[in-house]
Lab assay of single mutants.
Amino acid sequence: GAYRMKIYDRDELRGQMSELTDDCISVQDRFHLTEIHSLNVLEGSWILYEMPNYRGRQYLLRPGEYRRFLDWGAPNAKVGSLRRVMD
Score class of each variant (00 low, 15 high):
residue 36 I to M: 13
residue 7 I to G: 02
residue 27 V to S: 15
residue 83 R to Y: 03
residue 21 T to Y: 11
residue 41 V to Y: 03
residue 24 C to R: 01
residue 73 G to R: 11
residue 21 T to I: 05
residue 1 G to W: 08
residue 18 S to A: 07
residue 34 T to S: 08
residue 21 T to M: 07
residue 4 R to N: 15
residue 61 L to C: 05
residue 8 Y to K: 01
residue 13 L to E: 14
residue 57 R to S: 04
residue 42 L to Q: 13
residue 55 R to D: 05
residue 62 R to C: 04
residue 33 L to T: 09
residue 85 V to N: 04
residue 5 M to E: 00
residue 74 A to S: 07
residue 48 L to Y: 05
residue 55 R to S: 04
residue 62 R to L: 05
residue 33 L to C: 11
residue 6 K to S: 15
residue 43 E to H: 12
residue 18 S to Q: 11
residue 17 M to F: 08
residue 9 D to G: 10
residue 84 R to C: 13
residue 37 H to L: 05
residue 11 D to V: 13
residue 30 R to I: 11
residue 12 E to T: 08
residue 32 H to L: 07
residue 50 E to H: 02
residue 2 A to Q: 09
residue 64 G to R: 04
residue 68 R to D: 07
residue 28 Q to M: 07
residue 48 L to R: 01
residue 11 D to G: 13
residue 54 Y to M: 08
residue 6 K to C: 04
residue 83 R to C: 12
residue 76 N to M: 12
residue 60 L to S: 09
residue 81 S to Y: 00
residue 18 S to C: 12
residue 27 V to R: 01
residue 67 R to S: 08
residue 15 G to V: 05
residue 23 D to V: 00
residue 8 Y to L: 02
residue 54 Y to S: 03
residue 43 E to L: 05
residue 3 Y to W: 07
residue 46 W to A: 01
residue 46 W to P: 01
residue 56 G to P: 01
residue 39 L to I: 15
residue 73 G to Q: 12
residue 31 F to P: 14
residue 10 R to Y: 14
residue 9 D to I: 14
residue 2 A to I: 15
residue 46 W to V: 01
residue 42 L to E: 10
residue 30 R to M: 11
residue 65 E to K: 11
residue 25 I to T: 13
residue 36 I to W: 15
residue 2 A to S: 14
residue 80 G to V: 01
residue 66 Y to F: 15
residue 70 L to W: 06
residue 2 A to V: 11
residue 46 W to E: 02
residue 8 Y to N: 06
residue 59 Y to C: 12
residue 63 P to M: 08
residue 7 I to W: 09
residue 73 G to S: 07
residue 79 V to D: 00
residue 4 R to E: 15
residue 59 Y to H: 03
residue 53 N to L: 06
residue 71 D to T: 07
residue 58 Q to P: 04
residue 82 L to W: 12
residue 40 N to C: 09
residue 54 Y to F: 09
residue 84 R to F: 02
residue 23 D to E: 12
residue 72 W to R: 01
residue 52 P to H: 03
residue 51 M to Q: 12
residue 68 R to G: 13
residue 69 F to H: 07
residue 26 S to H: 11
residue 20 L to D: 01
residue 32 H to R: 09
residue 28 Q to G: 11
residue 70 L to G: 09
residue 84 R to E: 00
residue 80 G to M: 08
residue 42 L to C: 13
residue 5 M to C: 04
residue 15 G to E: 12
residue 24 C to Y: 14
residue 48 L to F: 08
residue 67 R to W: 08
residue 29 D to Q: 15
residue 37 H to T: 13
residue 22 D to H: 09
residue 7 I to D: 08
residue 78 K to W: 05
residue 54 Y to E: 02
residue 24 C to V: 06
residue 51 M to F: 10
residue 31 F to H: 11
residue 48 L to T: 01
residue 33 L to A: 09
residue 40 N to W: 06
residue 44 G to Y: 02
residue 2 A to C: 14
residue 56 G to R: 02
residue 23 D to P: 03
residue 3 Y to Q: 15
residue 12 E to N: 14
residue 19 E to Y: 13
residue 35 E to G: 10
residue 71 D to P: 08
residue 24 C to I: 15
residue 49 Y to A: 02
residue 33 L to D: 13
residue 6 K to R: 11
residue 81 S to V: 00
residue 3 Y to A: 07
residue 67 R to A: 10
residue 11 D to H: 03
residue 71 D to E: 07
residue 5 M to F: 02
residue 32 H to V: 11
residue 20 L to V: 14
residue 50 E to A: 04
residue 87 D to M: 12
residue 33 L to H: 09
residue 31 F to W: 14
residue 21 T to V: 07
residue 1 G to R: 06
residue 21 T to S: 10
residue 6 K to V: 06
residue 51 M to S: 10
residue 43 E to W: 05
residue 38 S to T: 01
residue 79 V to F: 14
residue 62 R to V: 05
residue 39 L to H: 01
residue 79 V to K: 00
residue 63 P to Y: 03
residue 74 A to M: 06
residue 78 K to D: 03
residue 34 T to H: 06
residue 6 K to W: 07
residue 68 R to I: 13
residue 27 V to I: 07
residue 43 E to D: 10
residue 19 E to K: 10
residue 18 S to W: 13
residue 47 I to V: 08
residue 40 N to D: 13
residue 64 G to Q: 04
residue 49 Y to W: 04
residue 15 G to I: 04
residue 59 Y to I: 13
residue 75 P to L: 10
residue 35 E to L: 04
residue 21 T to P: 14
residue 51 M to G: 09
residue 86 M to D: 15
residue 8 Y to V: 02
residue 65 E to V: 14
residue 71 D to K: 10
residue 69 F to N: 11
residue 33 L to F: 08
residue 82 L to R: 00
residue 39 L to P: 00
residue 58 Q to L: 04
residue 49 Y to F: 07
residue 39 L to S: 04
residue 43 E to V: 04
residue 9 D to S: 11
residue 55 R to N: 06
residue 29 D to F: 07
residue 61 L to K: 01
residue 45 S to N: 09
residue 24 C to T: 10
residue 63 P to H: 03
residue 26 S to F: 06
residue 32 H to D: 08
residue 21 T to L: 08
residue 27 V to M: 09
residue 19 E to N: 14
residue 16 Q to A: 06
residue 60 L to P: 11
residue 28 Q to H: 10
residue 20 L to I: 14
residue 6 K to M: 14
residue 1 G to E: 13
residue 64 G to W: 01
residue 82 L to N: 01
residue 87 D to W: 02
residue 66 Y to T: 02
residue 22 D to I: 07
residue 9 D to H: 08
residue 44 G to R: 02
residue 2 A to R: 12
residue 81 S to L: 01
residue 24 C to E: 11
residue 13 L to Y: 14
residue 15 G to M: 08
residue 59 Y to Q: 14
residue 65 E to C: 03
residue 3 Y to K: 15
residue 30 R to C: 14
residue 16 Q to L: 07
residue 56 G to L: 00
residue 51 M to K: 13
residue 70 L to P: 13
residue 24 C to W: 04
